[in-house]
Structure formats: structure tokens, C-alpha cells
């Protein structure tokens, strides 16, 4: 066990160091969600208050969007885990790791944890940014609970990306998968709008969509300002989702991860 933790910590810290030494990645990870919130969130700035309260259950659409947008960002974070593995395959670094007594699933877990940590980078910056638009920030426990839910979502989504691209060394594959699954998962969720007015089939997808779990859970915290009235069922779903995807990823990694 200690051996696995040593190996995991080495590979995880490598992922983090690589991220922090690339200013472009840091800037893009922070600016992109902030721009989303500012531009998309402002699209209802002049909407009548009654409309906002009826439709979004708040008078500030940015407050409604915040949890959904951060959840949607985790879809793109998942893609980074795939790209990082492909980079290691292309550069031969994966081979360097595989000639040491490191098991495939340790490599998989380091990529998933690295990408998820990278995803968390944007959370404090985005929270600070939305304060300028009058969004009230929840208490520390609330923020922490929301961050954990985002982390679980990110673990699950990164795992999906990784096990779908485990065998590939082609840079284009993660992008193709992202184009294929990100948009449906984003729109068929409660990330941007409430699903009350969705058609039944889309409501069904939305109710099974992990992006909805995280969006709704976070939104309840942000709007109420604390965790007093949140529905923990969404959090439980996220926990099950992350655990299941991680387990599938571990199995797939042990069976299929290899050098070209």
C-alpha cells in the first residue's frame, strides 16, 4: 500500500508541477469559465425580475449559472486527463513509468487526480469574480461541500475520458469525444436552465446526468448561502458516479494500458 501511495504521489505531483509551470494552461483554465459566466450570465441582465424569479428562482441569473457553469467546466477538465496520457505515450514517458514496478491503475489514478485538481484551480477565482456581479458567496462549509461535489464530478468525468481513450495515441480522439458528449451533457442538464420545461425524454436524461447533480447541489448552496436545506441525495449520486467510474477505469487501465 505504501508503495502504491509513493508511486501515486510521485506521478500526481508531476501532473501538478507540469500544470503550474505552464502559464498558458493556468490562464486559460481561469479565464475561460470567468468569460462564460460574464458573457452568458449577463444575457439575462435586463430581464424582468419576476421572470427571473419564476424561471430561475433567484433574481440574479449569474448566481443561478455559477454552479452549472463550474460543473460544465469539469466536462472539459476530463479531456485534459486524456490529453496528458496521450502526451506521455507520444513522448515515451509512459514507457519510462511502465519499466518501473508501477501498476497501470496507479498511472490512471494519477491522471484522474491531476486533471481534477487542475479543475479545482478555477473555483476560487470564479467565486471571487462573480462577487463583482452581486452574487452572495455561501459560508465556508457550503463552499467546501460544493468543491467536493465538483471534485467528485471531475473524478467521474476524467475517468470516463481516460477509459474511452486508454488505447489511443491520437490527439484528435479526446477532442472528438468532447465534441460528441460535452454538448449533450451540458444542454441536457440543469447547468444552464432548470429542467422543468424540458420535454420528457430530455428531462429523463437530465435527471440521470451527473452534471445536473452537481449543478443542482451547488445551486442550492449558493442560493441559500449554506448547506442547511440542500438535498444530499445529489451528493450521494455524485459519490456513486465517481466511485463507479473510477472502478471501471482501474479495471480498464489494468487490462488495456500499454505502450504502442
Amino acid at each position: 500500500m505504501i508503495k502504491i501511495l509513493n508511486q501515486l504521489s510521485g506521478l500526481y505531483i508531476r501532473e501538478i508541477k507540469t500544470t503550474f509551470r505552464s502559464p498558458a494552461i493556468i490562464v486559460l483554465s481561469i479565464v475561460q469559465p470567468l468569460l462564460w459566466i460574464i458573457f452568458f450570465g449577463s444575457s439575462f441582465a435586463s430581464a424582468p425580475r419576476s421572470f427571473l424569479e419564476d424561471f430561475f428562482h433567484t433574481d440574479n441569473y449569474i448566481a443561478f449559472l455559477l454552479a452549472g457553469q463550474l460543473s460544465t467546466s469539469m466536462l472539459f477538465v476530463g479531456m485534459f486527463s486524456s490529453l496528458s496520457l496521450i502526451q506521455d505515450k507520444k513522448s515515451g514517458y509512459l514507457r519510462r513509468i511502465l519499466v518501473t514496478p508501477t501498476r497501470n491503475h496507479t498511472i490512471f489514478l494519477s491522471k484522474v487526480l491531476g486533471a481534477s485538481t487542475r479543475g479545482m484551480l478555477q473555483v476560487p477565482i470564479v467565486f471571487a469574480g462573480v462577487m463583482l456581479f452581486g452574487v452572495q458567496i455561501p459560508d465556508m462549509i457550503g463552499i467546501l461541500a460544493f468543491i467536493v461535489s465538483l471534485f467528485l464530478l471531475s473524478l467521474g468525468l476524467s475517468s470516463i475520458y481516460l477509459f474511452l481513450t486508454m488505447k489511443s495515441s491520437d490527439w484528435q480522439i479526446p477532442t472528438v469525444i468532447a465534441n460528441f458528449i460535452n454538448l449533450p451533457l451540458m444542454f441536457a442538464s440543469t447547468a444552464l436552465f432548470s429542467n422543468e420545461n424540458f420535454p420528457t425524454w430530455m428531462q429523463t436524461i437530465s435527471n440521470l446526468n451527473p452534471v445536473s447533480f452537481s449543478s443542482t447541489f451547488g445551486r442550492e448552496i449558493i442560493i441559500s448561502g449554506n448547506i442547511a436545506n440542500v438535498n444530499w441525495l445529489y451528493f450521494s449520486y455524485l459519490l456513486i458516479f465517481a466511485t463507479t467510474m473510477l472502478l471501471i477505469g482501474v479495471i480498464v487501465a489494468n487490462k488495456t494500458l500499454k505502450i504502442d
Binding site: L11, R14, T18
Partner: peptide, 22 residues
């Protein structure tokens, strides 16, 4: 071919190797 992590220092590359061998 040379396979190292170019973004890391010599000591960091060695440290990762030491972790992989626990």
C-alpha cells in the same frame, strides 16, 4: 531516445524515479 520530463529539473526527475521505485 531520451525520455525525461523536460519541464522538470534534474532533481525533480530523479525524485519521481525514486517515488516510482518507492
Amino acid at each position: 531516445e531520451v525520455i525525461l520530463d523536460d519541464s522538470l529539473t534534474i532533481m525533480e526527475n530523479i525524485w519521481i524515479q525514486s517515488r516510482l521505485h518507492s
